[in-house]
Write a protein that binds this DNA or RNA. Structure first.
Lengths: 384, 384
DNA sequence: TTGTAAGCGTTATCAT
DNA sequence: ATGATAACGCTTACAA
């Protein structure tokens, strides 16, 4: 067993004061003479004293920490199938990217960045967990036991587990389809954003044949985006499909397969739609690869749009018109809601919708709008 | 004050056993009759009991958590200068990207991903902090008080603070220039990777005039890469510059300025080097923008290389040849070292160098090597 | 301004 | 297999 670390009473006796005084110094609670303060500070330095958060948390009945639960998107092949390496530098021609994107694209990294910032602003520490089996439940409860509140992203936790956890700490659900009246929620304008995007294609580019390229079946985000797609069609008197024309799985890889089948269909003489509206940027990028490789020009022959706003969609040729989700803002807001909830536990649950931005780029054709300075924005009123 | 949460003794009395037995059930330590186990589990469920990590940590003298300190790269303008918004969808033409990349490009997100995974494997929770003023010291000590060990990225902490913290918990320094004999370290093959890359340019492409485009002055990563650059030149009998020919700051924005000055110089009749070897991918991308815009072709007129392996460097036109850093692996290894250290505190400090990969892409010209299947690799021996 | 002392909710030791 | 009970290191009335 490790040798004993210095404790508050060690500091106290070394400084010739009581532990209460040391506590006051540490917590800056005032009512300490300058002399005592200096003595304590010195003792702390001499001893290399660091207060135990466990003891503090136990005594004060608050952890000073919040948690964020992210869904498991897999650890990533890089972490699991590790090559044995002796430290040599490898030189290789870049293999084709497989579209297996870490952390759900830039998604979780960005959410986390916003969450961390908000936690920092509130003076709280933050702990993160990807919730994966085995032992999911035990680990989540463990996390719940060490925080003052929890942000749960999407459908990370089963209802049962969420309920159990919620009996101990406040929960904010982020971008997850939950009963709105049980927890605070922060949502993304999936449907609204997609609807505005399709409005743009129809109104400003005069496009009349559009096909939706969906993501994994049953994914709530995808459903909402498809709903927005349909809403725009419907409002413009364009026939609304029962279900998405193409079904991908959010990955670039699967999108390439869809792309190849499209090219094949076109070769058979089938007419392509004027625009492919994709569930996300990865899908659009995969299609772009294949279409361009087969001589189909974007946007001249076919228009392509994405959703998310990942960096790669901005640097592709052409860059992809998309709906940008403010991921960091999402994380920030979730934590802000959470701290508000911790402060006043009895308020009614809130639902916050974070606005998205339709980013017009080359893949949907030229447009007359001039680029805006950062921060500026053209607000397009609802058509109605 | 919040109503009392159920405690272990609540569970105990409800299950008709002692708290010790409940503890045994929770910790799966065995020596519990099936009947007792079931009774306890039921009581836990009824009460919605979640064990307090604070109390556990205090009693068991271990936090079950590790921390990771990241240097502050700024919260990002998006989080600070927030627009007031009523939830409307904005539609705008994409403004020119400003190159201010969150989390240091994909850098921290990836490191974190690897760190989280390793922590999860070890059964530990993980807490993250960007160390920023004000109150940096207090916050870091707070973190130190709640963990069993700390990963410190780069030059995040002052030596004094690091020393203080290290008196309480083991430290692993990640990609930071520290005295090797005080803490465990995990490093990136900055110099080696750059050297191999430049070898490739010289040996395989026959390039003889190369200029280094540096990052922020004094950045250790940049220094090491420049050192690798020089080593390769020197070994090939090419004149070695005293200092980098161009000085950027890692940002795409600043790289564009450098690009414009290069174009200007070329217009004045000055000869451009055959290759611009950049400190990082962002810099290469910024140069690419400007050069291409002015009719200078890459790689035909000038070769461009980066460092890091960010996604955008793969999707640019042409894609950028670069040295890929396995960020996630870096995070994973750091945490692995840390858990090893926690297990045996008295071993000698270790230094681990993570191998990098030179990724050959279009920006350095065509090459005869055929793409390798993922996982395969051509290992180039050291020239000597 | 300072000290005393009673918790805080577990774990771990020792009996039984 | 189970139960008592003493820590664990701090905060926080309360008293002085």
């Amino acid at each position: 067993m490790r040798e004993r670390l210095p404790t508050i009473s060690g500091v106290a006796s070394r400084a010739g004061v009581s532990s209460a005084t040391v506590s006051r110094v540490i917590n800056r609670s005032g009512f300490v003479s300058a002399a005592a303060r200096v003595a304590v500070l010195e003792a702390i330095d001499d001893l290399g004293y660091v207060p135990s958060a466990a003891a503090r948390g136990l005594a004060s009945r608050q952890a000073g920490m919040i948690g964020i639960c992210l869904p498991d998107v897999g650890p990533g092949a890089d972490l699991v199938e590790r090559e044995v390496s002796d430290g040599a530098v490898l030189v290789q021609v870049d293999p084709e990217p497989d579209g297996a994107i870490a952390w759900g694209g830039i998604y979780f990294g960005e959410v986390l960045r916003g969450a961390e910032y908000a936690a920092w602003e509130a003076g709280l520490a933050i702990t993160v967990a990807m919730t994966r089996e085995p032992d999911l439940e035990a680990r989540v409860l463990n996390m719940a036991g060490r925080v003052d509140g929890l942000v749960v992203v999407g459908e990370t936790l089963s209802d049962d587990l969420l309920d159990h956890v919620a009996r101990r700490v406040p929960i904010v659900v982020l971008a997850g389809p939950r009963a709105a009246d049980r927890h605070d929620q922060v949502m993304v304008g999936n449907a609204d954003g997609m609807e505005r995007l399709v409005d743009h294609l129809i109104d400003d580019h005069g496009i009349e044949t559009l096909a939706y390229v969906a993501g994994r079946s049953g994914a709530p985000d995808d459903d909402e985006r498809f709903r927005g797609f349909c809403a725009a069609l419907s409002r413009h008197g364009i026939e609304v499909p029962q279900s998405p024309r193409h079904r991908g799985d959010f990955s670039r890889h699967r999108a390439r397969e869809i792309g190849r089948s499209l090219v094949e269909a076109a070769r058979q003489g089938e007419a392509l739609p004027r625009a492919l509206v994709c569930c996300n940027d990865e899908t659009a990028l995969g299609l772009l690869d294949v279409l361009v490789a087969h001589g189909i020009r974007v946007p001249e022959d076919i228009v392509l749009t994405g959703f998310d706003g990942i960096d790669a969609a901005r640097t592709s040729a052409p860059p992809i018109t998309t709906v940008e989700q403010p991921m960091a803002e999402l994380g920030r807001l979730a934590v802000e809601r959470l701290t508000a909830r911790i402060a006043s536990p009895r308020r009614r649950p809130t639902v916050t919708q974070v606005p998205v931005t339709v980013m017009l780029r080359g893949s949907c054709g030229p447009h007359a709008l001039t680029p805006l300075p950062p921060g500026g924005a053209v607000v397009r009123p609802h058509h109605e």
